[in-house]
Amino acid sequence: MKLEQNFFTLLGQVQQFTVNRAALKKQFRHLQREYHPDRYIAKTPQEQRLAVQFSAHLNTAFAVLDNPVKRATHLLELSGVEIDHQNSTIKDPSFLMQQMEIRETLDDARAASDLPALEVLLNQVSDQFQACQQGFSAQMESSQLSSPSDEKDLRDTVGKMQFYEKLCDELTSIIRSLS
C-alpha cells in the first residue's frame, strides 16, 4: 500500500506552519471514520491488515501536525532539511543566557515550593514559546531554503522551540506535583 508521506496532503491542509486545528481535526476524523479497523470487521484479513496500517499512519500524521515542534520538523524535512534533535546545538549566546536565567529561577522556585512564582514562570515561557513559533512561521515564509544560512536559522529556531516545549512540560509537571 502507498502511504502518503506528506502529512499536510494526507490530512488536506495547506503546507505551511500555521494550521487550522479545527479543520485538521475534522479531516482526521473523517478519514478515521472510513478507515478505522472497526469499519473492516466483515472484510478479508488482507483488507483488515491494510486498514490497521492506514489508520495507524493517520494517527501518526495527526500527532505530527498537531504538535508545533513536530510540525516544524516535518515542514523542514519536506523541504529537504533534516533535523537531528539529539545532536543539534544552539550557539546563540543571548538565548543560552536567557535559558540559564530561566533555569535558575525554576530551581529556586522549586526548592522553595513557590507555586505562584512557578506559575508566573510558566506563563513567561509559554509566551516565549508562542513568539518563537510565530518567528518560525515568518522565517519559513520569507526564507530561501536553498540558502545555507536561512537553513541554519530555521534549524536553530526549531531547536529553540524544542527547548521551550521541554521547559513548559517540566514546569507543568512540577506545578502538578506541588498542587
Binding site: M1, K2, E4, E34, Y35, T44, Q46, E47, L50, A51, F54
Partner: peptide, 10 residues
C-alpha cells in the same frame, strides 16, 4: 487486489 482497492479508495 486488496492493496489496489485500498490505494484507490484512499
Amino acid at each position: 487486489f486488496a492493496t489496489r482497492r485500498m490505494d484507490q479508495s484512499i
